[in-house]
């Protein structure tokens, strides 16, 4: 099974269902079976709770229409009680499986602890966007260092290191010794060597495939795994086996 751990419902055309159907058509061409989906159309870096709920409702609608999607509940930890309420609504009482965090708050802050504690109780993995830009991060854009700090405080939560910090040569090294952090290959250029280095530093059991579609091409991102000089068994783990385990599928 191939699982794309990082897909969005972006776009300003049609309904969320239209857009999700469109994505599935393209995913089929690359042999992708399941897609972890999060975020709505808002690109607000610090969304309020109304925007958060609207975003999750869009994903919810897609989940009801297509059983190949796996929902990741979008949160803004600046609204702690709202985030905990949204976890109850979407994960505990709803069809979502994981949590998605973007750029509203650095993820090593204390507000993240109650969220992680509830995630641990529910067995929900947390996908945290990370990047390390020499051109400058957004004010509250987390890096792998922030995820490392949080993951060490919550060893019973599985964290997916979104984009492995973009600058993956640094990202892998930062989390190499933290067993509950999974490094995701999504969202950067298809630079040869990315997957090989991840396997060498973190092990094939801790690398996961994701695309960041529709902004990124399914094809360019899955090429990082299909084109890697690694064992076929390791490719199978990265393309889906590891996420099956993380998601409890």
């Amino acid at each position: 099974m191939v699982i794309d751990c990082h897909v969005h419902v972006q776009g300003n055309w049609g309904t969320p269902d239209d857009r999700m159907g469109y994505l599935l058509e393209y995913a089929d061409r690359l042999g992708i079976d399941r897609l972890c989906v999060s975020l709505g159309t808002s690109r607000d870096h610090e969304p309020d709770m109304d925007t958060i709920r609207e975003s999750n409702d869009m994903v919810w609608e897609a989940l009801e229409q297509h059983d190949r999607y796996i929902g990741f509940c979008y949160l803004n930890p600046c609204y702690l009680q709202g985030s905990l309420d949204e976890i109850e609504r979407c994960i505990a009482d709803g069809p979502f499986t994981g949590i998605k965090l973007w750029v509203a708050m650095l993820c090593d802050q204390p507000n993240l602890d109650p969220i992680c504690e509830r995630a641990a109780e529910l067995g929900a993995p947390i996908l945290q966007h990370t990047w390390m830009k020499i051109t400058g991060n957004l004010p509250f854009e987390s890096t792998p260092y922030h995820v490392a700090s949080l993951a060490r405080r919550h060893p019973d939560v599985d964290f997916i290191l979104g984009h492995t910090g973009g600058n993956w040569e640094m990202g892998y090294r930062i989390v190499a010794d933290i067993p509950n952090v999974y490094c995701e290959v999504a969202g950067g250029d298809p630079e040869l060597g990315q997957t090989e280095m991840g396997v060498a530093l973190c092990g094939a059991d801790r690398i996961v495939y994701g695309s960041d579609a529709p902004g990124r091409s399914f094809a360019s991102q899955i090429a990082k795994v299909r084109g890697a000089d690694i064992a076929d068994d390791d490719k199978a783990k990265i393309l889906g086996g590891n996420m099956q385990r993380v998601l409890g599928l």
Binding site: L30, D189, P190, E191, L192, S217, A219, S220, I222, A223, K224, R226, G227, A228
Partner: peptide, 10 residues
């Protein structure tokens, strides 16, 4: 510098 599969798969 890039995996050539990225272009062929696209």
């Amino acid at each position: 510098y890039f995996y050539p599969e990225a272009a062929t798969l696209k």
